[in-house]
């Protein structure tokens, strides 16, 4: 278990949002050879907030998808602050099917503050686009790994986040709603975000304890202080989990086993009580 236990949940939110934190394309650039970015949803436009393409990762042919944030105002405007729009989700869906066709394992880098709140995204069916991606990922016939590298924000994260393995960088956060939104909804006070960050259990160690994620990728020091090290550790984690999934796939009834394991992984999520039956 990684060390940084002195950090509060809100500290981790701050680190997860650090402008110098490595972005999806930094991971792809460092870890992959011959990345060819594939653009566009073939319907409306190319969403620059969600990137995808084929690449070679340590000798394997893979498909990568990722939420892409910028580092400065100009880049962030181009990337819509990492908030994908419906056309981004639909590009991702197109590339998932492409991955399935060519039997490419899918590696998704998640770093999204939340879904795009604009009226145009509503008109273009943001909810349906996210739902379609979750539905496709539920039984996509290739091994899938999702890694939360910064912010795993709400439904937008889940559109890339339903996978055989879900990993989190140590200082990333994964939320049902941002701490600010949670604070304004539940505390009726947006300034309570640090309290919400603690109460909502959004950090990697807490989510691992709940068995909602599969592993934590250590950051020592935080990723923005030693980017190369964090990315290399991420590469090792991907390789390890991908090898395990490839072993499943290589077994008898491999694909069916892979899909059954994925079904069971999500089937068991939830906590409830049972009263005695009447």
């Amino acid at each position: 278990m990684p060390a940084n236990t002195t950090m509060t949940p809100w500290d981790r939110v701050t680190v997860a949002r650090h402008p110098q934190r490595p972005r999806a394309l930094d991971f792809v650039g460092d870890l992959c050879d011959d990345f060819i970015e594939l653009h566009g949803d073939r319907q409306l436009s190319d969403d620059r907030a969600l990137i995808g393409g084929v690449a070679t990762f340590r000798g394997r042919s893979i498909m990568v998808l990722g939420n892409q944030k910028g580092r400065n105002t100009r880049e962030n405007l181009e990337r819509n602050f990492g908030m994908a729009r419906p056309q981004g989700y639909r590009k991702a869906l197109r590339l998932m099917r492409h991955a399935e066709k060519f039997r490419l394992p899918l590696i998704n880098f998640i770093d999204i503050p939340g879904a795009d709140p604009g009226p145009t995204s509503e008109e273009h069916g943001q909810a349906m686009a996210i739902a379609d991606n979750i539905h496709a990922l539920a039984d996509l016939e290739v091994p899938t790994i999702a890694i939360v590298i910064g912010e795993g924000g709400s439904g937008g994260a889940l559109a890339l986040g339903v996978a055989d393995r879900v990993l989190m960088l140590e200082n990333s956060v994964y939320t049902v709603a941002s701490p600010e939104a949670s604070a304004s909804i539940l505390w009726k006070d947006a300034t309570q975000a640090p309290a919400a960050a603690a109460a909502m259990r959004i950090t990697a160690p807490e989510l691992l304890d709940f068995e909602l994620i599969d592993a934590i990728i250590a950051e020592s020091p935080p990723a923005h202080e030693d980017t190369a090290k964090a990315i290399a550790a991420t590469g090792d984690a991907i390789e390890q989990h991908l090898s395990e999934l490839e072993d499943v796939l290589a077994g008898e009834y491999g694909l069916q086993t892979l899909l059954d394991l994925r079904y069971q992984k999500y089937r068991k999520i939830g906590r409830w009580q049972e009263t005695s039956k009447p």
Partner: peptide
């Protein structure tokens, strides 16, 4: 989402949608 259940509630989206794949098959 039932915010008071944190990520458990977000992941119900995945759970329910995954369950539907069996109906579809």
């Amino acid at each position: 989402a039932r915010m008071q259940e944190g990520l458990f509630s977000l992941l119900q989206m995945a759970k329910t949608t995954t369950a539907l794949t069996r109906l579809g098959h």
